[in-house]
Each structure stands twice: as C-alpha cells, then as structure tokens.
Design a protein around this nucleic acid. Structure first.
Lengths: 138, 138
DNA sequence: TAATTGGTTAGCCATGGGGCTAACTATAGG
DNA sequence: CCTATAGTTAGCCCCATGGCTAACCAATTA
C-alpha cells in the first residue's frame, strides 16, 4: 500500500507495449474473450494473460468471467483521461506560443518604430528575444 | 506503419514515468537548460540525464548545447502523434457505439412489433438493452 | 592560470517487465 | 463419466530501467 503509481503512469506504461495497444485497438471494435484476443498473437497464454492483467489494473480494460470464458471490454475512462492529459499539455503549449507570438509582434512593431526614428540599435533587442523564450517565470 | 508503432512505444514509455511527464509539462511552458530542469528533482544528475535522453530518443524533446549549457525544448510532433492515436481509437470506439445504438434501436422496434403481434419472448432482448443504457455518453 | 560550473561517461546494483514451461482448476460437451 | 476446452497459478530467465557514485571533460570566471 506504500507506493501506488498514478493512474497515468499505469495507463501510459500499459500503452507502451505494442501487444497491449493492439488489444486495446481490438477492443475498440467490441468486446471479446481472452482466447479470441490471444489468437492473433504467437505467444503462450500465460504471457498473454499478463498483458490482460496489466490492462486491467491500469483501468483500460474490464473483464468478467462467465462459465469458463472471460470476456474483456474496453473501459474508455482511462483512455479518455490520458487523452485529456495530452490536450491539457497542448493547450499550455499553444497558449505559450500565442503569448510568444504576440510578444514578437510587439517587438517587431517597436523595432520598426525605432528604425523609423533612429539609426541602428537592433542587435541587442534581437538577443533579448532569445533570453525570453528560454525562461519565463522563475 | 510498423515504424510509427515503435515510435509510439517510445513515446508512451517515456510518458509512463512521472519525472519525465513533469519534464514535458515544464517544457510546455518554454525551453530550459538541463540544470534548470533538474533542479526540482532530488536526483543525481546522471540519473536525471538518463530521463532527458529517453525523452530525446522518443522524439519528444530536442536539445542543443551551446558553450557548456545544454538547452532543451519540446518537439510537439511526437506528442501530437500520440494524441492522434487516442483520437483515432476514440473515433473507432464511438463509431461502434453508434452502430450498436442503431442496432439496438432496430431491435427495439422489432420487439415492439413482436409484442404487438405475439405473446412473450423478451428474455434475451432485455439483457442486451440493459448493456446499452449502462454507458451512453462518453 | 587556477578554480568553479555544467554536463558527460563509466560502471555498479536492485527491481521489474515480458517471455517461457509445466502443472492445475473448472466448465462444457460427448 | 471422460475428455477436451479455457483460463489460471507457480516458477524460472533474461534483459531493460532507474537509481547511485566516482571520475572526467570543457567552458566560464576570478
């Protein structure tokens, strides 16, 4: 009970394996038994079951046993939470790009104005731009 | 295609580690030197450098050394390709849901018709319908 | 030139992941 | 009742991963 990894850790770790990604892709098309899922893979069943187990503990897959057959289905929640992570990062990234772009536009204007009214001071301003991208809040 | 998969392997594996996800999140806010990146982590530098290296070979991060300082920045391509994967899976999933739903609608109609014209045969149909109501919007 | 700073290389260690076989349980079918 | 089917459990192997220290460049800076 000491070190519980975050759900994202488990979801990404689960999806880092091509076999498991293939299983998820297969389950996107509908539920299936372990045997059906395992069929395309040249792998011993116990090995395959480990993958299923990883997917289950990551929350990506749910399964239920009835009789001697275990049926697996996708639980889209974990998938969505990972997708959310990407979208969140992208939002931050794009916001920064926007801020940067407007900043550069402002600089451009200022530079143009300075050029119009003066002689030549642009070298240092240019360097300042690099510094800013490097670090924002610290 | 197989090439792309192995890249996904690396991207997901890279993101499966909380340290590395934190680095990516930090880099979404702008580029930084290795030292700056390492600062928040209670970890020896060589260990930290391994994470940077993993991120670089996964294609998530680019770095450039000038003088004795190595500056890292995010390369959004890999991030986007992973996000695409999710969106693709979700599309398939949702398409299936739609197909399933129309199928159930068809069943409902048929059941209503059967009920109108016959006695009582609802057992299995009923079970199928419950499955649908269980998850609808997602 | 000497010392400091910022990374890098090399090598060690413990753990965990992904694969296997063999043997076992439990249902379904003949 | 007997056998085949579908998973499951146990245990072994190998190598990748994530952490460490120690020693080593190579730029800056005093």
């Amino acid at each position: 009970m000491a070190n519980q990894l975050s759900r994202l850790d488990q979801v990404f770790a689960a999806l880092a394996d091509p076999t498991r990604r293939a299983i998820v892709m297969r389950l996107c098309a509908g539920e299936a038994s372990v045997g059906e899922l395992a069929d395309p893979f040249a792998m011993a069943l116990p090995s395959f079951m480990k993958h299923i187990h990883v997917l289950e503990t990551s929350g990506l897959v749910l399964s239920e046993k009835s009789g001697r057959v275990r049926t697996c289905r996708l639980s889209p929640d974990a998938l969505l939470s990972a997708e959310d992570w990407f979208q969140h990062q992208r939002a931050i990234w794009e916001a920064r790009l926007d801020r940067f772009e407007t900043y550069v536009m402002k600089l451009k204007k200022e530079r143009a104005a300075a050029k119009r009214s003066s002689k030549m001071i642009k070298k240092t301003t240019n360097k300042t731009i690099n510094k800013t991208t490097e670090r924002k809040g610290s």
